[in-house]
Amino acid sequence: MQKKDHYVIIGNGPAGNRASEIFRENDKNARVTIISDEGFPFYYRHKLLDFLSGSISDESLQVKKHLDYKKNNIRLRLGQTVTKIDPANRVLFLKHMEKIEYTSLILATGGTRSILPSLAGFEKYFSFMTNYNEALALKPALSGIKKAIVIGGDLISIKFIKMLINMGKDVSFFLCKEGFWPIELTEKMSENIASRMKKEEIKTILDDYPVNIFQTNAGYEIITENGEKIKGDIIFYFMGLKPDIDFIKGSGIDTAEGVLVDEYLKTNYKNIYACGDCAQIYNPEFKDYWISTGWDNATLQGETAALNLLGEHKIIKPVPHKIFEVEGIKVNTSWWKEIQE
């Protein structure tokens, strides 16, 4: 008996989920599997702060319930990590020592936290807010925090700081313009942000930088380049996301910052496509690669990648450079525009 096609999608975000829907709609008999290293079902990442503050429940955070996948005969493997891909033999190796064979593969792994090399040695002291598990772990600790240090930034960090201030916390904010995401800040932009933060009575540190961090009995102490000592109960670190592709490197699939794909989202293997925040897409016009961010872009790319794998020839066009949407965060967009002005 001929084996059924097995479409495997690594990543349970908007790109991966849209791709799975396209596969199921177009091929009723195939096996469709989504693998995600997160244990929580598909959720609105941009609502994590609302979840953390308690304004929404984890129920409201979910886009799709586990049962929805079962109804569609999509196998959802949550909390499972792919550690290696063997594209030649079309096999995935999972961390829990299971092999999975696929006929077609979509890489939709999204982004993972990005750490500046100069601060990488202090990672163990940082608290992050890039996924559900991190938000869940932070939730009980949040009420006990009096003084927080935020090293940032990205657009989420700015919203996060506002949330801390509203909760009555004392916040010190390191604005790291060189690590800002998704674009590099100009001098003027940085000043605009700093001035806006100061208006909100947030201690914003613009021209100084952490060089050493200690854990103390009371929390943490940061020593800056200028010799300042800044103390806090907790250090939050927000420096945007980078494509989550470490496990793909060395597999034979071409990568740079992200997974390199053509304008059809195809990698250098004909049965492997990449989409969403992990993909670095070729722009034939500029003869260069670009990375897009945002929920809607990811959804469109998931759809395109799946359709192309099924035989269509749809092209993804580069997103205009000035439209920024980070994980669907709308709230900061106006702010952002204001800063740009």
Binding site: Q80, F93, L94, H96, M97, E98, K99, I100
Partner: peptide, 11 residues
């Protein structure tokens, strides 16, 4: 050794 597909409980 690695489990074949669907032969691992973690899956």
């Amino acid at each position: 050794s690695f489990h074949e597909e669907d032969k691992s409980i973690a899956g």
